[in-house]
Amino acid sequence: MGKRIVVDARGSSCPGPIVELSKAYRNAAVGDVIELWATDPGVKADTQAWAEKTKNKIESIKEDQDKIIIVIDIENR
């Protein structure tokens, strides 16, 4: 069982949450889970493209009142 890493990228739109995600991914290992919090709506498409590129799996995309939460299973690092 890997660790769960929460990346709070709320309020960031330029350069954007992807850089925050990538920063967490740099230090992650296979089996870890990254939970990305963001407010920029562009994050959904960008994270999907990122996951496809890095061959990692998006477990879920949810929206609550003040943020979008994307959970990513790290399957490749």
Partner: peptide
Amino acid sequence: TPYPRAYPSE
């Protein structure tokens, strides 16, 4: 670039 596109802002 680490961004999803050449310039990060669409």
